[in-house]
Simulated scan of single mutants.
Amino acid sequence: MADLGEPDRVASPVFIIGTERSGSNLLRLILNAHPSIAVPHPPHFMRYLASIERTYGDLTSETARRAATRDALALLRTHIHPWGCDVDEDTVVAAAAPSLFGVVAAVYDEYRRAQGKARWGCKSTFMVWHVDEVLAQYPGAKFVWLVRDPRDVAASAKSSVFAPYHPYRTAGLWVREQRLAAGALERHGPDVVHLLRYEDLVSRPAEEIAKLCAFLDESFDPAMLAPHLTGEAQRTSRLSAAWLNTAAPISARSVGRYQKSLTVAERRQVERVACLVMKSLSYSLSPDVHQAVRPALAEVLTRGALLRLATEYRSLRGDTNHFRRWRRDMTVLGLRARARLRAAVPTASPISGGNA
């Protein structure tokens, strides 16, 4: 294990990239079980704030960095999976590089310190859109491209409050994000981007986790094979039905779940949208993929809305973080509304957009 705060480890954060519902919760807990790596559940700072970064103004200014920090900490306060530690605003403002990601990195580093570990990680798969931005600040950063059969991703997304719901839309998102990850691998090479198939991880965990540790230049730790035994996994499983499996041992039981969870039409639609990328990643296609019919927009919207209503109802009844998620969503709307106001009134002080 590296010494706490060893510069090469602090400067080499770990990012899980790809598409949501690909097993990233499992991989987060595997990595977090390592004695050197702290990977909290992500508030998705860049997903929610990147589009309004320019409204903070020049982030070399302490005033602008403080405004961005306050917005980030507003998201953290309403996060659906509380971190369980305090993050000091002044410390983040002082430590942050002059960019939104600089603020995000400083927040994550505070979590690392609170956990007493040498290295931090980020499970926000949306960081696939920000790989080059991360490497500009952390040339030693490592990216784990976690990829899963898009049919299983779509099957999981149909009943998750964190996904696009309709399989056709999920397939489109999967294609875009795998292409981004593939581009990052092509540009930066396998020493920076490690391709990990979910199916291999759950079928051969010891072998794949050993490869992962070698990529990260970390010693293998047996605790990584039993992440479900950690307190973090138990706490995660109690928050949402979408995370129940985090309290169970690593298993391949979810591989191929689409065969029961997708209709024939849905499966064909996913394959038709994703076929080229699926082939490049060695996922087989069904013989009838050519029979796929593109769904009408009205069908996508209506079916997606019905799936969302059903999932929201289940979440309301069973998820302990249901109202926290609603509060988080309202916080995001508020932050974006204030950003629009800052953009419309350039003379307004950027700090006025911070509190939520």
Rank of each mutant, 00 (worst) to 15 (best):
A68M: 05
A118G: 14
P139Q: 05
R272T: 03
L135P: 07
D8K: 11
Q178N: 15
R338P: 03
G121N: 04
T236P: 05
R340L: 09
D109C: 09
H228F: 10
Y111K: 03
R338M: 08
P13V: 02
A171M: 05
D221P: 06
P42S: 15
A114T: 04
R268E: 10
T311M: 08
V144T: 08
E53V: 12
K158E: 00
L239N: 12
G140F: 01
E6W: 11
A114H: 03
W243K: 02
E271A: 03
P249A: 03
S124Q: 06
P35D: 11
R119S: 02
Y138T: 01
V277M: 12
T302C: 04
D288M: 08
R119P: 03
A226D: 14
A344M: 08
A38K: 08
S159H: 10
A114R: 08
V128G: 03
R303H: 14
A223C: 11
S349Y: 00
G183T: 13
T63D: 08
S240K: 00
R112S: 06
V332H: 09
L229D: 14
W83T: 11
N245P: 00
V345F: 13
K260Q: 10
K158A: 02
V107P: 02
E89A: 15
A296W: 05
P205T: 01
A339C: 07
R327N: 12
R28A: 08
N245T: 04
P346K: 04
L75G: 05
S282R: 13
A296H: 12
A214Q: 08
G116D: 06
M330S: 11
P13Y: 04
R197Q: 11
